[in-house]
């Protein structure tokens, strides 16, 4: 009984608290010589704990959304909020990961993972402890003293994952984090990542051009095309899940086709316009 009540209370507090992040009618227009509308009136609410994926062709504005959330960019109009506050003021809650591992080559694996903690002023014993735990999670507990150049691509991306993780961010922003990896390593990392996410109940925004990856990982997939959201697709697969088995699920082909058509139709319309 007791557990039930607390569960219900937990649920209601989730419903009342502000969404992890939201975009309210956000438009971005790049000024200057190549002036163009990158985002056009985007509305997006992501509740705490949701895993959301944005798919789209290159140049559709995917990365712009991430840059808004990280605070590298301010919207031309509209508001970007993280935990109910304007994005730039609350950068601390956000972890960021991109296709390139961006490890500092002069730092050993452990020191790379402690870097964000160092910047926040966490003391050395505590940050080494946190970093070591994060690295054990991604199966690199034996590689603490190696330099990045001594690692394979997959291992380096794992270190980057641990670095993002060590900060314990509420919100994870991932820009094609697995794009540079070979298929097998990629599947491994996707699986590890999903495991970590469900363990911590983090909110994740994954930007990818890979529809299968989006369906395998996310709760909701948005198709972004020319700066506007053209399709919003709930993903019916339950958690915890295994990204590999998703692709053999009977519901998968239809979902995949829907997303692909959404990407495609817009393309045809724009080419006839």
């Amino acid at each position: 009984m007791e557990t039930n009540i607390s569960e219900i209370q937990g649920l209601s507090s989730i419903a009342e608290s502000p969404p992890a992040f939201e975009l309210e009618d956000v438009s971005v227009c790049f000024a200057g010589a190549n002036r163009r509308q990158v985002l056009n009136g985007i509305n997006l609410r992501v509740p705490r704990g949701e895993f959301i994926a944005i798919v789209g062709k290159s140049g559709c504005g995917k990365t712009t959304i991430l840059n808004l959330l990280v605070g590298l960019l301010t919207p031309t109009s509209g508001a970007v909020k993280i935990n109910g506050k304007v994005a730039i003021e609350s950068r601390h809650h956000v972890g960021y990961m991109v296709a390139r591992d961006c490890l500092f080559p002069w730092r050993r694996v452990l020191q790379n993972v402690t870097l964000p903690l160092e910047v926040r002023g966490v003391n050395s014993t505590e940050r080494n402890e946190l970093a070591r735990k994060a690295l054990e999670k991604v199966a690199l507990g034996q590689c603490l003293e190696l330099f990045p150049r001594q690692l394979s691509h997959g291992m380096r991306q794992r270190v980057a994952l641990a670095r993002t993780w060590a900060l314990n961010p509420d919100i994870l922003l991932m820009d094609e984090p697995f794009a540079a990896l070979d298929a097998l390593t990629r599947l491994d990392l996707e699986r590890e990542f999903l495991g970590l996410v469900s363990e911590r109940k983090s909110t994740v925004l994954l930007v990818t051009h890979d529809l299968a990856e989006a369906l395998a990982m996310a709760d909701r997939v948005l198709v972004l095309s020319e700066g506007a959201i053209t399709l919003e697709q709930k993903v019916p697969f339950e958690r915890p899940r295994d990204p590999e088995s998703i692709m053999t699920d009977t519901r998968f082909p239809a979902l995949f086709k829907r997303l692909r058509d959404a990407l495609h139709s817009r393309e045809i319309r724009s080419s006839t316009a």
């Binding site: 990280v70 605070g71 590298l72 950068r91 601390h92 956000v94 960021y96 961006c102 870097l115 964000p116 910047v119």
Partner: peptide, 8 residues
């Protein structure tokens, strides 16, 4: 860029 995102 990473340094910026980490708020150096």
């Amino acid at each position: 860029m990473l340094a910026h995102a980490l708020d150096f």
